Simulated scan of single mutants.
Amino acid sequence: MFSLILIAVMSVIVFALLLNGLSLLRGPDLADRLLALDTMYINSIALLLVYGIYVSTQLYFEAALLIAMLGFVSTVAVCKFMLRGDIIE
């Protein structure tokens, strides 16, 4: 029963990723596309965590942590580029 719930949760997260991909392609502005990309990496973290629970291994948790760190740094870099036009001062 628990595995069926995890599969259902993974399918909902994949559907959310597809909707975020559509928003990423359709977004009229760079800020909208950045927000869709941020939501995509958060959903991919959630998908990795749920899949890690499903297969009972800790490898996916470490991958999710790595994606979280890289996603934060890339978001800060793109926001700084959007505000100032340059990343390094």
Score class of each variant (00 low, 15 high):
L30C: 08
G27H: 06
I53N: 01
E89F: 13
C79K: 00
Y41R: 06
V78S: 04
I42L: 12
L65D: 02
I53E: 03
N43Y: 13
I87P: 03
A36W: 05
A16N: 15
A68M: 03
C79N: 00
K80E: 01
L17P: 07
A68Y: 06
D38V: 09
A46H: 04
D38K: 08
L6K: 08
G21K: 08
M82G: 00
T39M: 08
A31Y: 13
V14N: 10
D32M: 14
A36I: 06
L48V: 11
D86Y: 03
A36E: 03
A77T: 07
K80T: 01
A46W: 06
L22Q: 12
L66T: 15
E62S: 15
L83A: 02
I5F: 15
L6D: 08
I45D: 04
Y60V: 14
R26H: 02
K80C: 01
L4H: 08
Y60E: 13
A31N: 14
M69V: 14
F61I: 14
N43T: 13
D38W: 07
I67H: 05
S44E: 04
F81A: 00
M69W: 05
E62C: 14
D29K: 12
L34E: 10
T75C: 05
I45H: 02
M10H: 02
S74G: 04
S56T: 05
P28N: 09
V50N: 09
F61Q: 14
L59I: 15
M40S: 09
L19Q: 13
A16M: 14
I87T: 07
P28L: 03
Q58Y: 15
L83T: 01
E62T: 15
M10T: 06
L18H: 13
A64P: 02
S44Q: 09
L66K: 06
I45K: 04
L22M: 11
V76C: 01
L19A: 12
R26I: 04
L49F: 02
L18I: 15
R33V: 04
G85W: 02
A68D: 02
